[in-house]
């Protein structure tokens, strides 16, 4: 019976759980989530690929038209690539809603600025 008071106290308190898809938890600064690669800064040294413990990064193509591909399904969000990159081309955002029904392979993401980078070079 030692807990009765605590129980009744919680009756008037707001529940600690949240209704997830309709409410999201308060974001915490510095969370390591989605990996974003700025291909304009990248020099293609491959350090991040060498250091990634989960083999989640891949270089696609060669030379000037190459791009970095990141597989969210493999990534363990350790942030080693961010630390390894000599040009600070990689950053991690707090975006964590990365679940998808696609396969690990097809969910791979190209860097977003790839197109912008590629256009002038082709002319």
């Amino acid at each position: 019976m030692a807990m009765e008071r605590e129980l009744l106290r919680h009756l008037v308190k707001k529940p600690a759980t949240i209704i997830y898809p309709f409410e999201s938890p308060e974001p915490i600064e510095g969370t390591r989530a989605k990996v974003e690669i700025d291909i304009l800064k990248c020099i293609g040294c491959g350090t991040c690929i060498h250091d990634c413990p989960a083999y989640a990064l891949e270089m696609v193509g060669k030379g000037l038209t190459c791009d970095m591909k990141w597989y969210p399904g493999r990534c363990v969000f350790c942030g080693q690539c961010v630390e390894s990159c000599p040009r600070n081309a990689i950053k991690q955002t707090a975006e964590h809603d990365l679940a998808t029904t696609e396969s690990v392979e097809s969910a791979g993401m190209m860097s977003e600025r790839f197109v912008e980078f590629n256009r002038p070079k082709k002319e």
Binding site: H50, D51, A54, V76, S84
Partner: peptide, 13 residues
């Protein structure tokens, strides 16, 4: 099969 740096994250698991 992993470097010491990669091992840092494997050991957590």
């Amino acid at each position: 099969n992993r470097t010491y740096v990669q091992g840092l994250y494997l050991i957590e698991r």
